[in-house]
Amino acid sequence: MVPVTRLRGKLKLYWSLIKSLQTGLLLLTGLAGFMSTRCPLTNWQTLLGLTGSLFLAISGSTILNMWYDRDIDAKMARTAGRPLPSGRVGPGEALRLGLTLAVLGVGWAVALDPLYGLIVFAGLFFDVVVYTIWLKRRTPWAIVWGGVSGGMPALAGRALGTGQIEWVGLALALAVLFWIPTHIMTFSLRYAGDYRRAGVPTFPAVYGFRFTHITIAVSSLLAALMMAVAAYGVGLTWGYLRLIMVLSAGLLLLAINSLVQPSERINFGLFKYASLYMLSAMLLLFFV
């Protein structure tokens, strides 16, 4: 009974290492990219391979980020309780786990389709090496690379379905790329003090709140435009395109409102809405 309890406790710790909500959303963008190519649902082997490989690669990437950022996580109240900074998981153990999952995920992806595998690897490389290790502590513009890696699952899913990199896949990836600043900057506005204490350069710290709000509004507009382009390219009917436009209008409305009347409440509401927006748009591409 004791080993079972210990195993359960361990899995619970590992689960919190992979940021399940974020991983789930990125996984959904990959699945939506694949499903938008209208591959038959009965091809369950490919769907299973896509889900498994992406889940492992994204989880591995997230754990490696957590491993590298454990020192700054320890300085921020919001993240100090995470398994690594709180000492519930050792750095060596996290590194081994992250590498194992990443290698398994990328390996499975390459075995499934070399082009797909290459894109999954690129996503992991941009996220861990370029974004986290190289740029995150040097420049607030690192989030552009975070956005590039965030767009990779959608591009990979689309490439797996079509066998090539085409403009619809790129539009989908760009929609995610432009959405990521909204997602991250609203968060960095909310926890600006935390990031300052940890010495992480964020837009609010370097350029001020006003410029950050403007950037959020512009990136929301671009994300909405690219989502509409991608949805059109996928071949969504007018009805669903109208629905995406309404959801996009909500995103823009909130972004503009946060620019005109900046407040903590509107900012965090925008953060929540942006997540809901991406979820809804991807579900529409997935099912319709």
Binding site: T237, W238, R242, L243, V246, L254, L276
Partner: peptide, 30 residues
Amino acid sequence: QIAIGIEGAAPPAVWAYTVGFGALLLAGVL
């Protein structure tokens, strides 16, 4: 309702309904 539209309605009417139901949708979500 936005997605299925109103069959047979002229485009301006469909867009007007889209705005109305869109505002209802956003009201609920917000």
